[in-house]
């Protein structure tokens, strides 16, 4: 029972881990280049959760100074993750652009169809 209560108590962490692992799994297991990128995105997204969820302080308010409140949530993770989201979007965009170019050159985006063509390299 302790395990279940542990999971419930830290459900945000477990969701993070689940997303992280499933994203990584998709990257490894899929041969379709777009699907790989989706997995990669998922993997990156899990990190956003990892950062932002501990930033929330129970009973805290958004960090806007107000004499009525003394407890604020930590704003820094959100700022950081804003940057990380930008990075993630850039990565995804670049990845997709590469896939488009690969599709133009090879006529496919399936890895197992491309790699036999690689002239034994």
């Amino acid at each position: 029972m302790t395990i279940i209560s542990e999971i419930v108590a830290n459900y945000n962490q477990w969701i993070t881990i689940f997303l992280m692992v499933s994203g990584l799994y998709i990257v490894v297991a899929r041969g379709n280049m777009v699907k790989k990128l989706v997995g990669l995105s998922l993997f990156q997204t899990s990190v956003y959760l990892l950062y932002t969820s501990p930033g929330k302080i129970l009973g805290g308010t958004p960090p806007i100074l107000d004499p009525d409140f003394t407890v604020y949530s930590n704003p820094l993770p959100h700022v950081l993750i804003l940057t990380a989201i930008v990075v993630g979007v850039a990565t995804l965009a670049l990845g997709l652009a590469l896939v488009v170019r690969i599709n133009e050159e090879y006529g496919t985006i399936e890895e197992d169809e491309i790699f036999p063509e690689k002239d034994g390299e």
Binding site: V27, G95, L98, I114, K118, E121
Partner: peptide, 17 residues
């Protein structure tokens, strides 16, 4: 070489991980 694209993609996946 068109394989440059594949290399870049491969590196993108690995590098991002």
């Amino acid at each position: 070489d068109r394989r440059a694209l594949l290399s870049a993609y491969q590196y993108l996946i690995m590098g991002t991980i």
